[in-house]
């Protein structure tokens, strides 16, 4: 029987959650025995090659591309997991949610009124290349955009948490994480 497939992505995240996944150390060898990786930065596969059992999502949705990738994940994965606080709550990127989008741009790019940092931008242009995805009005947690089946909190969630959750899901067992793995204080 073919191995189940796992896909991963980093939306508006810092890749810290992916780093944590790599922190399972030598268990990565066991994981590769258990599953094949599909679309993921781990193997650099850019498009889905088929149906996946599990999709791991790092980061929330800050721009249109994030939304489309997430939508693609929902279409292709049986189970979607929001991994880490950015996926679950929006995290650090969502700090901009209290500021109107226009002001965010000005702060970042404009040299007017000394608003922006030391950017040489005499025409006060806001980057507007069709290649650059448009920003959303605010950063959305993933479950507000598509249905999410599981949430693994943490910034990032510890490697053991990711490991235990993945193994349980892939072997059809209930995800019963011990208290130490989901306590954060």
């Amino acid at each position: 029987m073919a191995k189940p497939k796992v896909a991963t992505t980093s939306l508006a995240g810092c890749f810290g959650c992916h780093m944590s996944l790599l922190d399972i150390d030598d268990r990565i060898l066991k994981l590769v025995e258990l599953v094949d990786f599909d679309k993921s930065p781990v193997d650099d596969i850019k498009e889905f090659t088929g149906r996946c059992a599990v999709g791991l999502i790092e980061g929330g949705c800050a721009n249109e591309e994030n939304v489309r990738v997430l939508q693609d994940f929902r279409r292709h994965c049986d189970i979607l997991i929001s991994v880490g606080d950015c996926a679950i709550n929006g995290g650090i990127p969502a700090m901009r949610n209290a500021v109107p989008l226009k002001e965010c741009f000005q702060e970042a790019y404009s040299t007017d009124n000394r608003l922006g940092p030391a950017v040489y931008n005499p025409d006060n242009q806001i980057p507007n290349d069709p290649e650059i995805p448009l920003l959303l009005d605010k950063v959305y947690p993933c479950h507000e955009v598509v249905k999410i089946d599981y949430h693994l909190p943490g910034c990032p969630p510890p490697a053991d948490t990711l490991w235990e959750a993945l193994v349980a899901l892939l072997s059809d067992k209930p995800v019963a994480l011990p208290y130490e793995l989901i306590k954060y204080d």
Binding site: R75, L101, V145, V146
Partner: peptide
Amino acid sequence: EEGFQPTFDIHAALQTAEGIA
């Protein structure tokens, strides 16, 4: 639209950025 939560409106979410761009 397929896959989205019924409460998520991509067009509304993009409106501001489209205005700026």
